[in-house]
Simulated assay, not measured.
Amino acid sequence: MAWNLLHGEYHGGDQVRSVKLQNLRREFEYMRMRENEPLTAYLTRLNELINQMKTFGEVLSNERLVQKVLISLSKMYDPICLVIENTKSLETIELHEVIAILKSQEQRFEMHNVDSAEKAFASFSVNEKHQNKNSTHSGSAKSQKHWQSKNKSWDSGSKPQQVGAAQSSNGQNSCIKKD
């Protein structure tokens, strides 16, 4: 009797279960990976939804799940999805195989992003010889650094000014502290 009471409370009657399942199906159909969402976060969201659907009695075939994953990924994954669709049989490939392929592709994306960031900053060096070594700075004012590219000169035309420095009424520079 307690089981029936709990079952009725959490699952509701047949009509309530049918409505909940219909809403979950709709959510499943419209679910898409967000543009900057990591693959693992999207797969977690999708898995939670699938588990809710299974709780209400929905049976999804492996082929349907593979298709859902492949069509709902962000644009960045289109090339790898095309390769999977053209080289594998969607009827026989397991979902965990597709996920493994996608995760390895995500690692390649991350590796290339790290490499490009390192390359972008590798061509810069800090040149501190233009600083006035005798000057003292108070408060939050930092020493000014002159960035120069290796083997390239900067054509800025004007000298960079120190942030936070202002001309006082007596003609001397003073530091302004901003909160």
Rank of each mutant, 00 (worst) to 15 (best):
W3A: 09
L5I: 08
L6D: 10
L6N: 09
G8A: 14
G8S: 11
G8H: 12
E9I: 12
E9N: 14
Y10H: 06
H11T: 04
G12A: 01
V16M: 14
V16L: 04
V16G: 04
S18Q: 11
V19E: 15
K20T: 08
Q22L: 15
Q22G: 10
N23C: 06
N23G: 10
R25W: 00
E27R: 04
E29D: 15
M31A: 03
M33F: 01
R34N: 14
L39S: 03
A41S: 09
A41Y: 02
L43Y: 01
T44Y: 07
L46M: 08
L49T: 03
I50Q: 04
Q52M: 14
Q52G: 02
K54C: 08
T55A: 15
G57R: 03
E58C: 02
V59R: 05
L60T: 05
S61G: 13
N62G: 09
E63Q: 12
R64C: 06
R64N: 11
L65S: 08
V66I: 07
V66Q: 00
V66T: 03
K68D: 01
L70Y: 00
S72F: 01
S74A: 10
K75C: 04
M76K: 15
M76Y: 07
V83S: 15
V83Y: 07
E85I: 09
N86E: 11
T87N: 05
K88S: 06
T92P: 00
E94S: 06
L95Y: 00
V98F: 01
I99R: 01
I101W: 01
L102D: 03
Q105R: 15
E106L: 02
R108V: 12
R108A: 11
F109P: 03
F109H: 11
F109V: 03
E110V: 04
M111L: 11
H112F: 13
H112W: 14
H112S: 12
N113Q: 15
A120D: 02
F121P: 02
A122I: 03
N127W: 05
N127E: 06
K129Q: 15
H130P: 02
H130Y: 13
Q131S: 05
N134P: 04
S135T: 14
H137Y: 13
H137E: 07
A141Y: 01
A141C: 06
K142P: 01
Q144N: 08
H146Y: 13
Q148W: 00
K150Y: 15
K150I: 14
N151P: 03
W154C: 15
D155M: 06
S156D: 09
K159L: 14
Q161G: 10
Q161A: 10
Q161Y: 13
Q161W: 03
Q162G: 10
V163K: 08
V163Q: 10
A165F: 08
A165H: 14
A165M: 10
A166D: 13
S169M: 14
S169Y: 13
N170Y: 05
G171L: 00
Q172S: 09
Q172N: 05
C175R: 08
I176E: 05
K177F: 07
K177V: 09
K178M: 09
K178D: 12
D179P: 05
D179T: 04
